[in-house]
Amino acid sequence: MSDLELWITLLGMTLIAFALRYGPLVMLERFQLPPNLQQALRYVPAATLAGLVFPALLAPGGQWAIGLDNERLLAGVIAALAAWRFRNILLTLLVGMGALWLLQWMGV
């Protein structure tokens, strides 16, 4: 990616991120989102975030890898328990990375 392309990319990302945050804030004084859309938007975080997490754990090499030899899946499940219990980024990162390093070191 050239310098020019990089700055065009960044500028576009900036505008997209801003428009999504700004539009409803100023327009909804006059309009309401349709109920169907409101309902669909409620599931955006769960669906997109899972779309970011699952492939990294279930298919770290680009192929399905469901088994005990998949260190990232095991470490991810342990980290998910930590995330659920503590709701804390730092602790989850420490537990997850620690589990991965331990599993790699043990050569599971």
Partner: peptide
């Protein structure tokens, strides 16, 4: 970032 539509509204 779609979730921001929900937050913003």
């Amino acid at each position: 970032n779609l979730r921001y539509i929900m937050y913003s509204s």
